[in-house]
């Protein structure tokens, strides 16, 4: 009995982590998987439309300089990069695409007048998805624990 409960708890934990990672990759997907369709779709649209506006303004997720002894190192760029990765799949596509040069997908134009503003759109998009993922964890991890121990949420 205890072993079965422990197994169920482990399964719930694995499912929860899978949903968290998917929620990071595709904003709002965690809520859709939990049958909160309206919330998931609205969050997906809000976060991804913001990201796409940033891309249309010639922005991209750019790999920063991590070595502080190299000229061009800027801690703000590094923090911006980390937060921009919050949008998961689109951010990764933008990062890889921009690295491939002008022929890649979702490339940016670092010399463009709107590039800084566009980076800000990507930053807000990423930051908001981090918040949504944390909210998803807070909302459903407690329920998962409660279900496995037999208590009501």
């Amino acid at each position: 009995m205890a072993a079965r409960q422990g197994q169920r708890r482990e399964t719930h934990k694995a499912v929860m982590w899978g949903q968290v990672i998917l929620s990071w990759l595709i904003p709002g997907s965690g809520f859709v998987l939990r049958k909160h369709y309206a919330r998931g779709v609205v969050l997906f649209l809000l976060i991804n439309v913001t990201f796409m506006i940033g891309v249309l303004l010639h922005g991209a997720v750019v790999w920063p300089i991590w070595n502080r002894h190299i000229e061009g190192f800027n801690i703000v760029n590094n923090l911006t990069f980390i937060i921009q990765l919050g949008n998961g799949l689109l951010s990764l596509l933008s990062l890889v695409g921009h690295s491939l040069g002008p022929n890649g997908v979702l490339t940016g134009k670092e010399w463009h007048a709107y590039f800084d503003l566009a980076s800000f759109y990507l930053l807000v998009s990423g930051g908001m998805n981090y918040f949504v993922v944390c909210h998803f964890c807070d909302r459903f991890s407690g329920r998962a624990k409660d279900k496995s121990s037999g208590k009501s949420a």
């Binding site: 919330r39 609205v42 969050l43 809000l46 913001t50 506006i53 759109y121 807000v124 908001m128």
Partner: peptide, 15 residues
Amino acid sequence: SLLYLSMVVALVLSI
């Protein structure tokens, strides 16, 4: 952009 981005942040927090 100021108006739009602040609206997005407010909406996500409120949702």
